[in-house]
Structures are given as C-alpha cells and as structure tokens.
Write a protein that binds this DNA or RNA. Sequence first.
DNA 1: AGTATTTTGGTACTTTAGTATGAGATAGCC
DNA 2: GGCTATCTCATACTAAAGTACCAAAATACT
Lengths: 138, 138
Amino acid sequence: MRKTILIFSALIIALLILFQLSKYSYASGDTSNEIFIAIIAIAFFIIGIYLNKKSLHKKQLFKNEIDHQKIKDLGISTREYEVLMKISEGLSNKEIADVLFISESTIKTHVSNILVKLDAKRRTQAIQKAKALQIISF
Amino acid sequence: MRKTILIFSALIIALLILFQLSKYSYASGDTSNEIFIAIIAIAFFIIGIYLNKKSLHKKQLFKNEIDHQKIKDLGISTREYEVLMKISEGLSNKEIADVLFISESTIKTHVSNILVKLDAKRRTQAIQKAKALQIISF
DNA sequence: AGTATTTTGGTACTTTAGTATGAGATAGCC
DNA sequence: GGCTATCTCATACTAAAGTACCAAAATACT
C-alpha cells in the first residue's frame, strides 16, 4: 500500500518532468515530438505490466496461505493438525506413528477426532475438505 | 490495492486537466498536444495491465493443467483415470461404484491397477503422487 | 476378421482404517 | 489444589481397502 503510493507519486513527478521537457522541445522544434510520445507510451506500458504483476503475485500468495484461524475454529489441536498433514502426504497410520514416535493407537484416536471435526467419513475425504477449507496447502 | 490504483489514476488525470486549464489561462496556444500525450500514456498503461493479466492467467492455467501425456505414459486407462479422480474427491470404493454404475469388485480392480501404475501403496499416496505428476488438479 | 487392450466382475484372503470406550499422564489456568 | 484440555495408549470390534488370481465381455486397432 505504502509502496503503491510511492510508485504513483514518482509517476506523477515523472509525468510533470516530461511535460516540462516536451514544452522545451516543442519551443525549439517539433521533430522529436513523435519520439517523445513513443517513450511515454513504452514507459507507461512497462509500468502497467510491472504493477499488475506485483498485485497478482500478492493475490496468489494469499490464495495458497493456510487459514490458521479456521483450524482453531474447527477445534483441531496441534497434534491433530500434524497427523492431518501426514495423512495428506499419503502416509498410513503405522507410518505416521513411526515418524511422530507414538503408537498407532494414538494415531487412530487422532484420526477419528480429525474426521469428526472435518465432518469426513474417510481420510481421503478429510484431505479434500481440509484443502477446500485452506487448512492444508498443496 | 486496486482501489488505490484507481484513485491515483484519477488523480493523474485531474492533474493533467489542471495543467491544461492553467496553460489556457497563460496563453491560448497549441494545447491539444499535451492532452493527446496524456491519453496515450493512460491508454498504454491500461493496455499493459490488461495484457499482463491475460498472460499470467494463461500461465496459471498451464500450471494447473493436467498432463495428459503423462497419463498415457503411465499406462493409465480412461476408466482408471475416472476412478482416480473419484478417489481424490474422497469417495469410497462403494460410492465410486455407485456413481459409475459398476460393481465394487471392478472398482477394486481399477484401484489396484492405479496403485501399481502410480507406484503407491495406498489411495492417499496415489492422490499425492497424482498431484505431484500434475495428473489431477485441485 | 482377428488380435490386443480395456472393462467388467467374481471369490477368497490379508491388511489397513475407523469406531467405541475407557483411562492414565501431562500441562496450563484460576 | 482442582479444573480443563490435550496427548497418550489399550482392547475389541466393524468396515473398508487392497491383493491375488481368474475369466468373460466389450472396444479398439489394423
């Protein structure tokens, strides 16, 4: 936001300077006028592309960001969220138990709780729902 | 963000108009030139934004587009691919059987073949791998 | 028309996933 | 200390998922 204001301010200043220059060149002779117009056109074209790319890039980042608030709202705990991510990576309960150094029984408990909180019947559906809710990234 | 850009654009236009008015008051000379330049600048600015948006949109589509060639390379048949998509939507074998109007046995056969072709041990891993290979979109 | 591939379906079996229930351990909060 | 939430683990069970092997159709290919 602050950056955008700065960029536009600089743009206005540049415009004013160019205006002054055009006045000088117009007084001396009007052969450089077409070149001047071309430069303005190209400059603004590039500025337009640059600004648009920046704004779209930011938008894109926002889209793929995970919604931590929603995780809290759903009552998903830290440990449950860890398990949820492992599920989305395609790991089995046993494998998740191994990487988290806890028993498979505990994983099953976590998975069951996750399924209830996400209103899913299967782990594959949990993956789908978690993605739709922007709780996990992909 | 977009609002800010619009506001500043309007500001620039207002500035240019003021410029013209001030020039009129000084001496009624040739003033249509500056207006012309301003219009060119704004026009190219808008064109720049428009073109950039188009190209980025296409890029985005390409990124999320499914790689049909890779599906063929992996030897995944049409029916198997249909099943794969249903799996990624979180459906069970029985549910997939119902929506495709075939028996659950057939679905199991398809799923087994998919797992072999994707080198996955579970359907969740198949989802993960299919995503990584850009075979399915999300 | 005849071969190749795909699609379909079955049985029998093993493995994994998920449910229900209970309960001990830990940590933060008032 | 007592309360609450989280994390942990277990048993016993049911339900799904997945494997292996087979085989009849429907399609595709040339």
